[in-house]
Amino acid sequence: MTAHAHDNFAVVSSDSDQLILVNEHDEELGLADKLSCHDGQGILHRAFSVLLFNERGEMLIQKRAEVKRLWGGFWSNSCCSHPREGESMTYAAQRRMSEELGLEAKHLTYLYKFQYHAQFGDIGAEHELCSVFIGRCDEQAKPNPHEISEVRWLSPEALEHELETNPDAFTPWFKLEWSEIQNKFKAQLEAEIAGLV
């Protein structure tokens, strides 16, 4: 994977971005702009989430920039976005990590795919078929302020504590992903952290 050029102050997303519409079987149905995909109840589209861990087993979490239309100011997983038409999910995930965090994971492991719907009041909704990846990264993040206001590395124990005591501070998709990983994918996560994959 070739590293993508990183400009910390580049605007890397807009409401006119074309997202890939899919059905529940992840079959492509066409394209629609990002604004339309997140209006009202949302339109089901393809997405991905990345959870990055360092050698100590800590996870990189990000606070979404306040200017974001949906869940601005909420804590979430390391990186999430949408693939462009013609991109593989892995390539899209690496591209977005570079754009948002100035990072490149040496390896990403695909875990699973899930469909969810989350309503953000009357502002809009996320309605995504989301592919979840984990990866190992020991570099220092360089957050793009258009996307991220803050980043932190947290141990699983500290993250669990925050999720239990202040769940409303986190995005709904991240809470679903973390629960699923803890329940079904701990062995893969431990192998990723140990550098065995």
Rank of each mutant, 00 (worst) to 15 (best):
Ala141Val: 04
Leu108Glu: 03
Asn166Ser: 14
Glu147His: 10
Ser98Ala: 15
Tyr116Ser: 11
Cys130Tyr: 00
His161Glu: 15
Glu99Gly: 06
Glu150Tyr: 09
His161Gly: 08
Arg96Ile: 11
Arg152Cys: 03
Thr165Trp: 07
Leu154Glu: 09
Ala92Arg: 02
Leu108Ser: 04
Trp153Met: 09
Phe133Val: 06
Pro167Val: 11
Pro156Cys: 03
Gly135Phe: 00
Lys175Ile: 08
Phe174Glu: 02
Glu157Val: 13
Glu162Leu: 14
Asp168Glu: 14
Ala141His: 05
Lys142Leu: 15
Ile134Cys: 01
Glu177Trp: 00
Cys137Trp: 03
Glu99Trp: 04
Val151Lys: 02
Ala158Asn: 14
Leu111Ile: 08
Gly124Ala: 01
Ile123Gln: 12
His146Val: 10
Glu99Met: 09
Val132Ser: 02
Val151Gln: 07
Asp138Gln: 11
Thr165Arg: 11
Ser155Trp: 06
Ser149Gly: 03
Lys142Gln: 15
Phe174Leu: 03
Leu159Phe: 05
Thr109Lys: 15
Glu150Pro: 00
Ser98Phe: 01
Gln94His: 14
Ser149His: 05
Lys106Ala: 13
Ser155Pro: 00
Met89Ser: 14
Pro156Thr: 08
Ala93Gln: 05
Leu108His: 04
Thr171Pro: 00
Lys175Pro: 02
Leu129Pro: 08
Ala93Ser: 13
Thr171Met: 07
Tyr116Phe: 15
Glu126Phe: 13
Lys113Ser: 15
Ser131Gly: 12
Glu162Ala: 15
Lys113Phe: 07
Glu177His: 12
Ser149Asp: 13
Leu101Trp: 01
Gln94Trp: 04
Thr90Gly: 10
Gly121Val: 06
Leu176Gln: 07
Ala118Asp: 10
Thr165Ala: 14
Pro156Tyr: 06
Lys113Tyr: 09
Asp138His: 02
Asn166Val: 12
Glu128Asp: 10
Gln119Glu: 11
Val132Gln: 01
Gly102Ala: 05
Glu139Pro: 00
Ala125Thr: 01
Tyr91Asp: 14
Ile148Val: 15
His146Tyr: 06
Tyr110Lys: 12
Glu164Ile: 12
Leu154Ser: 03
Cys130Pro: 03
Ala169Cys: 11
Pro143Val: 10
Cys137Ala: 02
Ser155Gln: 02
Phe133Trp: 01
Leu163Ala: 06
Lys106Met: 09
Phe170Arg: 04
Pro143Ala: 05
Phe170Gly: 07
Pro156Asn: 07
Glu100Tyr: 10
Leu111His: 08
Thr90Trp: 03
Lys113Glu: 15
Gly135Trp: 00
Glu99Lys: 09
Thr109Tyr: 05
His146Gly: 08
